[in-house]
Design a binder for these strands. Structure first.
Lengths: 216, 216
DNA sequence: TTGACAACATACCCGGTAGTATGTACCTCT
DNA sequence: AGAGGTACATACTACCGGGTATGTTGTCAA
């Protein structure tokens, strides 16, 4: 109440813009998407977007941040739980994969954002934002790396380079981003089934024994 | 000799353009890459490129085709060999992965090309080209699918959906496209080592038994 | 040597897009 | 009720980039 005026209606508007932007960016890619595209999919005009975001890049970065935040929200509780390592890793893998499917449009932006980071950035102002986003993504991967190396030291998994193992695991769990499409008859169990196959593949790939991943 | 005039010097020029284009498209993505970018990296101007290609899309398509052709060239001999299924699949997986690393810039274009196909295409003329390229890519995947299903029916591999298994395998083997970078002290053995780890991960993920993939 | 053509470079056009400047309706607080 | 601010829409500018039209140079064949 005593906070900034009109604090209540602001958030849903931002959410709408973020959702529309995420969909457009997923459909056409960052540089092929125009602000007018996003506005049109909102039934609005540029003014609406530029009232809330200073630039196309800022909008994209916020989609990135939003997507990553959603990942943290579902993963951290599992990572901080006191399960055995094998159970924890299994749980994290499948949960991550389900999140990829459920928030596909945001996660595709995260993916493309990582590529944009590797390429040349834009203004120095945005550099700082990029560094922050990069750190966010790194921290997320670090959660998995910790559990991965715990699993390895406990003899639960077998791999050579943990960096490569981490990349391979993410590629497997993220793979629905690139071939999954929403259809009509798809309910929660359909998504669950896909995530199970991906997680099973990833955990097998990491060299985990069958009895540890049987019911993923 | 009696073929089209100046058949000899034409090819190197095209190769140069394709190489430069592949590098630019990898570095900045298709739509963020301008023809001037490609020309500049050649030390030339637009005229040179538009003399050989009618449009930016045509150039990109040719990079795609070139990349796929290189894949066929190395894979088909293995696929047509009379090895046992396990050996053949192992060999194909690693060979494919090495090809991804060696011709990374072309393969990144193939990857982005697949995404462009899924999105809206451009002119109807280019539609036909796209269909041809799509078929090329599908045929390539089909080679793997055949061996994959043979492996499954022989009890060498375990997976549910063969389509998903195929996707997951490709994601693993293609993963160096997104994190591998050329450095100084990298020789053939370095690449071979990376490809081994990726192939091992993929074959494990497909549920192959350890004794079949020990020396990948 | 000269015409024809290949292989470019140069100069230009024009549509699309990021970003801005301005107008306007509505809402809130005093 | 009126002043100020929010939340947009409208109208405009500036520039970039795809594509084209035209000029220039070398080469080869007759």
């Amino acid at each position: 109440m005593s906070a900034s005026a009109t604090a209540n209606p602001v958030r849903p508007v931002q959410e709408d813009i973020l959702n529309a932007a995420a969909h457009c960016f997923m459909d056409r890619g960052y540089s092929a998407t125009s602000i007018d595209d996003v506005a049109r999919s909102l039934g609005a005009t540029k003014g609406r977007i530029y009232h809330h975001y200073r630039s196309k890049a800022d909008l994209f970065f916020d989609v990135f941040r939003h997507g990553m935040q959603m990942n943290f929200d579902v993963l951290v509780p599992i990572a901080e739980s006191s399960q055995p390592t094998a159970d924890k890793l299994r749980d994290m893998a499948k949960t991550h994969c389900i999140a990829m499917i459920r928030t596909q449009h945001f996660q595709r932006c995260v993916w493309e954002g990582v590529e944009l980071l590797q390429r040349g950035a834009t203004t120095p102002e945005q550099r700082e934002v990029l560094i922050e986003l990069q750190a966010m993504r790194d921290n997320y991967a670090e959660i998995f790396r910790t559990v991965l190396e715990a699993a390895k030291s406990e003899g639960l998994a077998r791999f050579d380079s943990s960096s490569i193992a981490l990349q391979l695991m993410f590629m497997s769990l993220n793979s629905p981003l690139f071939w999954y499409r929403e259809r009509e008859g798809q309910d929660a169990s359909t998504i669950d089934n896909i995530a199970s196959q991906c997680a099973l593949f990833a955990l097998r790939g990491l060299g985990m024994k069958e009895e540890l991943i049987a019911d993923v």
